[in-house]
Amino acid sequence: MTMSEFYFGYALFLLLTVAISLIRVLRGPTSGDRMLSAQLFGTSGVGILLLLGRGMEMPALWDVALVFALLAAVAAVAFVQRVWKSGEQKEAKSDAS
């Protein structure tokens, strides 16, 4: 097994973990749970980009990974500020009715 094959296999494994956490997006029940899966998507994405950057000899992907690492947090905070407060109340009401 060459090194780049190892990296590709590893990236595939991380993609699998993302797939597992996507089940949580389907199940919910709150938007916070779904956001959590999205957060894992972001952090696994960082890992996948790092591995592909090495496996494919594309150092630029490391920069993308760095940006992903920052954006994952920004997305979470933006979600909290914009979506949760209004969205969750609506959800609670529709559950009760």
Binding site: F13, T17, I20, S21, R24, L40, S44, G47
Partner: peptide, 8 residues
């Protein structure tokens, strides 16, 4: 990473 997904 797998633990994180399983935990979620």
């Amino acid at each position: 990473m797998l633990v994180a997904a399983l935990g979620i």
